[in-house]
C-alpha cells in the first residue's frame, strides 16, 4: 500500500489531538465536578446546564458549531485548536459526571476522620479523597477515552486531516474507497483496543494493591 504513510500521518494527527483532549479533559472534568459537589451557588447550576447540553450534542454538530460559528462571536480559531476544543468540551462534560459519581459515593467516615485530625478541607481533598476517587473513576474515565477516540472522526468535517479524512482523500484519489477505509478502521480498532487493555491492566493492579474493600 503506497498510501500507508499518509494514512499513518492521519493516525498520528488523530492520536495527538485525542491525547491533548484527554489530558486536559480529565482535570477539567474534575474541576467541574468539584463545583457541583461543593454546591457553589450559580456556578453549580451553570455547570449542570453545560453538562446536560454538551452530553446531548453530537460531536460533529459541536465541531461545526465551534469551527464555523466562533467567528460570528468574534473568536477566530484555526482548525487544530477548534478540533482540540471540540473534543475537550465534549469529554469534559462526560468526565464531570464520572468524577461526580465517585465524589458523591465517597464514604463520609473517612472525611470525618480527616476533619477530626485537623486536616483543612483542601488538605483532606488532596490526601484522602483524590487518591481514592481517581481509582474508583479510572475504569469509567478510560471508557470515556475510547468514546473520545471513536468520536474523533467528526473532526474530518472541519478540515483536520485526521485518520478518517486521510482515508477519505486516498479513496477519492484512487477511486477505490474501500481499502483505505478498511485500513483506517483497523488502525482505530487498534487504538481503542490499546486503551481497553491498558484499563484492564490498571484495574487489576489497583485491585491487587488496595483490595476490593
Amino acid at each position: 500500500m503506497p498510501y500507508l504513510p499518509f494514512l499513518l500521518q492521519g493516525a498520528l494527527v488523530t492520536a495527538s489531538i485525542s491525547l491533548v483532549a484527554i489530558a486536559l479533559g480529565i482535570p477539567l472534568g474534575l474541576a467541574l465536578a468539584i463545583v457541583r459537589w461543593q454546591r457553589i451557588p450559580l456556578l453549580s447550576q451553570l455547570v449542570a446546564l453545560y453538562v446536560s447540553v454538551v452530553r446531548a450534542t453530537p460531536a460533529i454538530t459541536l465541531a461545526l458549531l465551534i469551527f464555523f460559528g466562533s467567528p460570528s462571536i468574534g473568536i477566530v480559531l484555526d482548525a487544530t485548536t477548534a478540533a482540540i476544543l471540540t473534543l475537550l468540551i465534549n469529554t469534559s462534560a462526560f468526565n464531570c459526571e464520572i468524577w461526580r459519581a465517585a465524589l458523591i459515593d465517597f464514604p463520609r467516615d473517612q472525611l470525618e476522620a480527616a476533619r477530626a485530625y485537623g486536616m483543612s478541607p483542601g488538605l483532606a481533598f488532596r490526601r484522602v479523597i483524590l487518591p481514592q476517587v481517581w481509582r474508583t473513576s479510572l475504569p469509567a474515565l478510560v471508557n470515556e477515552m475510547t468514546l473520545l477516540v471513536k468520536a474523533s472522526p467528526a473532526l474530518a468535517v472541519i478540515g483536520i486531516v485526521d485518520l478518517t479524512r486521510a482515508a477519505s482523500r486516498i479513496g477519492a484519489a484512487t477511486y477505490r474507497p474501500l481499502p483505505p477505509f478498511l485500513a483506517a478502521t483497523v488502525i482505530y480498532m487498534l487504538m481503542v483496543m490499546l486503551l481497553v487493555v491498558a484499563q484492564r491492566h490498571v484495574e487489576r493492579m489497583v485491585r491487587e494493591r488496595y483490595g476490593t474493600g
Partner: peptide, 30 residues
C-alpha cells in the same frame, strides 16, 4: 482539632495508605 485525637466506632482508617502511612499522615501534613 489537631490537639484532640479521635477514635471512631468504624475505625475510619484511610484505605489507600498503609498502616504506618495512616499514623504519620496527620503529623506530617497537618
Amino acid at each position: 482539632r489537631v490537639r484532640m485525637g479521635m477514635v471512631f466506632q468504624h475505625f475510619n482508617l484511610w484505605p489507600h495508605l498503609t498502616v504506618l502511612e495512616n499514623v504519620i499522615e496527620a503529623p506530617m501534613h497537618v
